[in-house]
Design a protein around this nucleic acid. Sequence first.
RNA 1: GGCCCGUUCGUCUAAGGGCUAGGACACCACCCUUUCACGGUGGUGAUACGGGUUCGAAUCCCGUACGGGCUACCA
Length: 507
Amino acid sequence: MSNRVRVRFAPSPTGGLHLGGVRTVLYNYLFAKKMGGDFVLRIEDTDQTRFVPGAEDYIFNCLEWCGLVPDESPKHGGAFGPYRQSERKPMYRQYAEQLVAAGKAYYAFDTPEELEAMRQQYKTPELPSPQYDHTLRLNMRNSLSLSESETKALLESGARHVIRIKMPETGTVSFTDMIRGEVSFETAVVDDKVLLKADGMPTYHLAVVVDDYLMKITHAFRGEEWLPSAPVHVLLWEYLFGKENMPQWAHLPLILGPSGKLSKRDGAKYGFPVFAMNWTDPKTGELTEGFKEKGFLPEAFINLLALLGWNDGTETELFRKEELIAAFSMERVHSGGAKFDYEKAKWFNHEWIKKASAESLISMVKEQLEKAGTTNVNDELLNKVIPLAKDRCTLLTDFVQQTQFFFESPKTWDLDAIKPKWNADKQAFFEAYIESLKTSHPTDAVTAEAQFKELAADKNIKPGELQLPLRVMLVGGKFGPPVFDILLLIGIENGVERIHSCINQLQ
RNA sequence: GGCCCGUUCGUCUAAGGGCUAGGACACCACCCUUUCACGGUGGUGAUACGGGUUCGAAUCCCGUACGGGCUACCA
């Protein structure tokens, strides 16, 4: 019971959920499921100034779309709640005070202005970012530099203050990362991070340790960008709950964009989505397109994310979620960052579309068609059409071009594809073909093709020169499944109509 | 600047001292197909550099270079 695996994903609800975030969720989820453990979602909303309405719901929607549903969360409940840090506010101060009492932390009264002044004062070319650390803390206004009575007076007068960790001046902190092995830091070069803010809220550093402890987290996975502050967290564990109770850390390699770390702010500037689903910034109203709306299947999305930094050691690349759970291991996660390759991402989606059954695609394809203005979609026909179109679709949005003409006549015809080689003989052929279709009324594609070729032979025209015009007449352009399959599925009468109206336009 | 992490084809990666360094995406060619795809065959293309250790290093160690991350009362 006590060693049940528990992992958590702890996003701050400040905007869209990007690729790296979803992959962190995925690895947490896969690990938890593989180990028969719990996957907890905790909302890190300790920064009230960055609150973004709707962001939390959005995160849940993304996880649901991906099929990575938490066992415990503010929405799903659980025995370790509340799962929103803002609702846990009263729990944190006692730990910070405990650290102060033990001499491991101290009160600091510096105002933001004073901190800024300090940074300006000590800034040099060699030291572009001065830190609030052991070299400077005695120059600042805190319970270390002030006398005991001064500190007491300030505290009693209700002066705004924070609590900072007192990083040891000497020594190293080290821990074993599941991906990187032994990692160590000199405590002297780490700054005295704020643990408890002036508003009484904890910073991430305090909250992550306290909550991981209280929520009995056994394995903590997060992005590599957290590595530099890991010594603070390790020290906090040592001071508060015992290093032996600390979860096992794994710092995941970053997913990089064309230039460095993928950033939320970069949105879709790269020419590909970075968010799982559409995200509209409530302040600016700016919409950033997501993978879902771009036309990705969730199966493909998690598959491609899983393989970005992990593989099972074989040459298999296509995994269903259950297969990922079975094959996953943290030991095979890479340590190096991975540049996101949108071309490969599209390949994954194409593969998943090809693998998907027609039935499972119907509602999604229908949605695409409806979005394109085609609303009279018949499920039975669509079910026959999808198998013909699948191979030609990389994104779900591609189904519009590949299937729309089955349900309505083309809105435009690519007549330029026919015109250059159009002549009276061909005109005569198609007029004859219309009559032939009306009388013979073929009921299968093979017969229809045979008749077409026979008539072409009669007229002394190569069938190849006639097939492209026929295709354009039926679908509107040079695309789509085999032309006689189309003819049969749209119906002979319908086909005749399209050929007829097209001939007229060519005259 | 300091600290930390990283470095195999353009991209994602395999190969945990011993093979002509394997696969996938992308690209190119050919076949199939007289729409486009799918599929098939083949091709271009990589161990950053310099030192060690070793009979032997992509693999272990050191240095250099390069890349990335962090350096907030943000996460």
